[in-house]
Design a protein around this nucleic acid. Structure first.
Length: 285
DNA sequence: TGTCAGGTCCTCA
DNA sequence: TGAGGACCTGAC
């Protein structure tokens, strides 16, 4: 079994995996995290020597080498500098940054993000995780067994195209089943565009996403931030509404005001600011 | 048992 | 345009 040791800064496994950006990692009793990324199954823990992350590659997908994990964990970005800039903005964001100072934005697969965040609407994290695991088990490629459990990769668009609405309803996706069937069909019909979505500008990518079924402004911004690395995307969910009301006095309906404010105040790092604020309000209420 | 959860879509003024 | 209700399901 291969393993990697990577030097990390501004890095906290719990904060990264519990800040709501991903649904495929589970905390173990010893504080390590076990999960699937791409076609790989891995276990992550902090090495005794502080500042080193240990990644045990329990099953490794083709080409998913050290560079894959560096990109996945966004290790080449200087979060220290970004945090410093954000902290200068005001007292509230400074508190939030200090509270979640080890958060990093993962670089996840765009298609997986599309489906995962359609599922996330009007739901909660345990249920979202269960639905994503069910979909992966039924339509994804088997990765391997570990400690008595079988792990599967998230399905490709072609594999998920085999799913019917009734089958997805059986997996307890509820009314989101119809959205997924329609969205997968639209994506497969526009594969040329979807293939180049990672190189699109924010506005073009968002416009494309909003044409899919079951994707509104909030879900689109989650996909843009967590799957397409648009760091200024500022997803506004109920928690962000809450903290924008408490910290900055916005009416909860005033989404446009919040977006403009975030763009103006946090600029190109609005998405990371959103994660700090989100993690802070969830951890303090 | 009822409420609410990381929203979107549809209808109707 | 924007407000308000419907929508699957399950954790709490």
């Amino acid at each position: 079994m291969a393993s990697l040791e990577l030097q990390v800064r501004d890095f906290d496994l719990e904060q990264i995996f519990e800040c709501g950006q991903c649904f495929r990692w589970d905390r173990r009793e010893d504080g390590s995290y076990l999960g699937v990324a791409g076609q790989s199954l891995a276990k992550m823990s902090m090495a005794q020597e502080s500042g080193f992350l240990k990644i045990e590659l329990l099953r490794s997908g083709d080409g998913e080498d050290e560079n894959f994990w560096k990109k996945y964990l966004d290790l080449d970005r200087d979060y220290g500098k970004i945090k410093e800039e954000l902290c200068r903005k005001d007292e509230k964001i400074r508190e939030a940054v200090e509270f979640g100072s080890g958060i990093r934005i993962l670089s996840q697969d765009p298609f997986e993000m599309v489906i995962s965040f359609i599922i996330s609407q009007n739901s909660n994290i345990p249920r979202i995780k269960k639905c994503i695991n069910s979909i992966s088990e039924k339509y994804g490629k088997k990765i391997g067994d570990y400690e008595g459990r079988t792990y599967y990769a998230f399905p490709t668009p072609n594999a998920l195209a085999k799913a019917t609405e009734a089958e997805l309803m059986d997996l307890k996706l509820g009314y989101r089943a119809a959205y997924i069937v329609k969205t997968v069909s639209i994506i497969l019909g526009n594969m040329d565009n979807f293939d180049r979505i990672e190189s699109m500008e924010y506005e073009e990518a968002k416009e494309f996403l909003l044409r899919l079924s079951g994707i509104g402004p909030k879900v689109a911004d989650c996909i843009l931030l967590f799957g397409l690395r648009h760091f200024h995307a500022f997803p506004i969910d109920v928690w962000v509404k809450r903290i924008m009301h408490e910290a900055y006095g916005f009416e909860e309906k005033d989404l446009k005001g919040m977006q403009d404010f975030a763009k103006e105040k946090f600029g190109e790092n609005a998405g990371l600011a959103q994660q700090y604020l989100f993690y802070y309000i969830r951890g303090n209420s």
